[in-house]
Design a protein around this nucleic acid. Sequence first.
DNA 1: ACTATCTATAGTGATATAGTAGAGTATACA
DNA 2: TGTATACTCTACTATATCACTATAGATAGT
Lengths: 146, 146
Amino acid sequence: MKITYKSDYALKTILDLALNYHNGVVTLHDLAKRLDIPVNFLEQILIALKNGGFVKSRRGKTGGYLLARHPSQIKIGEVIRLIEGSIDPIACVHRGYKGCRDLYKCVFREVWQGVESATSNIIDNVTFEDLVNKTRLAKESLMYSI
Amino acid sequence: MKITYKSDYALKTILDLALNYHNGVVTLHDLAKRLDIPVNFLEQILIALKNGGFVKSRRGKTGGYLLARHPSQIKIGEVIRLIEGSIDPIACVHRGYKGCRDLYKCVFREVWQGVESATSNIIDNVTFEDLVNKTRLAKESLMYSI
DNA sequence: ACTATCTATAGTGATATAGTAGAGTATACA
DNA sequence: TGTATACTCTACTATATCACTATAGATAGT
């Protein structure tokens, strides 16, 4: 798995919307400013997130974005898969991978499958509710420490 | 982690040399032909493997390559790290990563570190001796089944 | 000397990444 | 009804990485 800026931004965007889950919509502009992401780039990401069913939008003067589901119902693995397309460490099976014409393939493929399932096991067990709680805890302990 | 053709080829090359561990040197040409890798590309990979201490070479007419260590002393994680440079799913810490100026970083970084250590746990526990045994077993069962 | 081998470095086409730019559409509100 | 403010959509571009390709040179056995 590789996390590009695109999915990194997507995850941060969902987290921001999760933190504002009870505050109504958030505008593209606010998101971009707060998360330090180029507006036009974030725009494309939000459309992808919308098409993926993670986000809803409202147009016009009081418009903006909001989560389509409760933070507890969104796992970070889902978002990554939407943006990155896949989780595999190697394109053994899919796409026109042209190595492996003989049995060498087998001994390594088991390893890659192990890596993939270990990765899935982590990212499919973290919800944005978890992350919201963690974020709030971090913020609190920061305040007490000052 | 992402496995490119380069590290895929490197791993297959080490496995081939491991299978021939008691047969003396193997030439670049033979490796390239047997593994179906472009000669000039494999050349570069072998030099990297040599500089990494995995492979030794002999020049001249009876020259070729051989493993610098016993197959049981080479883990696939070591080879991947040499060729890919790193195992991280995201360049959070190293290289000029320019996201994360505030605490958003923390909640995700834990996840990436989890993925990294789960991955390491797999690839640092598979030696080329393991793979040689698996390859031989696969070859045997193939013969019996015919 | 000759030839088969490894060594080293520079170049190249294709694709992916991370943006930019700009025209268009919908909605609230005066 | 007009206009400001938001989202929507498509096309373009600079840079880097990937997967090679090319070529000149060094070394060692016969």
